[in-house]
């Protein structure tokens, strides 16, 4: 009978047999799985580093500041891509911040539980829409039905429509991160405000939002990072797949860092072109990686500040 009381000695208090083996094996297996994420990080850096180095060490630096981004012709004007990313991201934020933040405030501070129960899944459905779908929607609906109706000079492929598409993609992200931040503000603060006779709008704008501001900043930064990293909407709707002249006109076509990477790889069996065409893809990839990494680290700071506060 294994459950009889046995005399106590050091031997008896040792864990042996299958249970001990399972415990040790489990620990190593789970650790390896977790450690794999560090390996993946290493794989990303490694896959970017080698060709980026080739590019940086061999490129003629004068080609980095030309009239446009035409990698197959040896013109690597980085500012074209950076400005393209910047413009679409600004447009995206102009769409996503008011809508996402508005939805978040509504859900956290105004909505009845029953309304919230419908709204939250709706936003999750929106969050689940693949970006290719938004790309198609931006090209075939937002561009002709919205942008070209409002601005007669707009071309079929334009950065404004692409930016709006990216913005729609990031609405759920802004909404959910902001809502989490506001819901983590303790109710005692709201009660204190109402207790002094404050109206709801003053409570929201002067108590809840300031208390949640770190989380709201985090939401904005995460959304910017996501918008900069979004590829397919711009790839499909902003045109300029072969390359792009430097342009700050959001009503015309343009190219972002992400779309430049995808364009170079798309449609051909091999990435071909002049000398460093292939390597330029990795160079842009590194730039994109570092930029989003920086934004994510900053956002992480802000998120943690919220956690520490409450």
């Amino acid at each position: 009978m294994p459950l009889a009381r046995t005399p106590v000695n050091l031997e008896a208090l040792r864990l042996t047999g299958r249970r001990a083996v399972a415990e040790t094996l489990g620990r190593y297996a789970f650790f390896s799985a977790a450690f794999f994420s560090i390996i993946v990080s290493g794989m990303i850096v490694w896959s970017l580093a080698a060709e980026t180095w080739t590019f940086v060490s061999q490129v003629d630096y004068s080609t980095l500041w030309t009239d446009g981004w035409f990698p197959r012709r040896g013109m690597y004007d980085i500012k074209t891509l950076v400005v393209g990313s910047l413009l679409t991201t600004i447009v995206a934020m102009l769409v996503a911040v008011p809508l996402g933040l508005g939805a978040a405030i509504y859900m956290s501070e105004y909505a009845k539980p029953s309304v919230r129960k419908v709204l939250k899944p709706t936003l999750e459905v929106l969050a689940g829409i693949p970006s290719v779908v938004l790309g198609f929607f931006a090209l075939t609906f937002i561009s002709p039905e919205v942008v070209q109706r409002l601005f007669s000079g707009a071309t079929q492929f334009n950065m404004l429509a692409a930016g709006i598409g990216v913005g729609i993609l990031t609405i759920p992200l802004v909404a959910s991160v902001s809502e989490d931040a506001m819901r983590s503000v303790p109710d005692t603060l709201r009660e204190a405000s109402y207790g002094m006779g404050a109206r709801r709008v003053s409570t929201v704008l002067r108590v809840v939002v300031p208390a949640a501001v770190s989380g709201l900043v985090a939401a904005l930064i995460i959304a910017i990072s996501r918008a900069i990293g979004e590829t397919m909407v711009v790839f499909i709707a902003a045109g300029a797949t072969g390359g792009s002249l430097f342009s700050v006109d959001v009503l015309g076509p343009g190219q972002t860092m992400t779309a430049a990477i995808a364009s170079q790889a798309a449609g051909t069996d091999q990435v071909v072109g002049e000398g460093l065409t292939f390597q330029s893809l990795f160079f842009v990839g590194s730039l994109l990686f570092l930029l989003t990494l920086l934004l994510n680290l900053v956002a992480d700071r802000f998120v943690r500040r919220v956690r520490q506060k409450y």
Binding site: S37, M43, S225, T231, L288, F289, L293
Partner: peptide
Amino acid sequence: NLAGVPSVVYGIL
């Protein structure tokens, strides 16, 4: 951080 890496960068990987 991996969760925030753009998908196109995973494509490069």
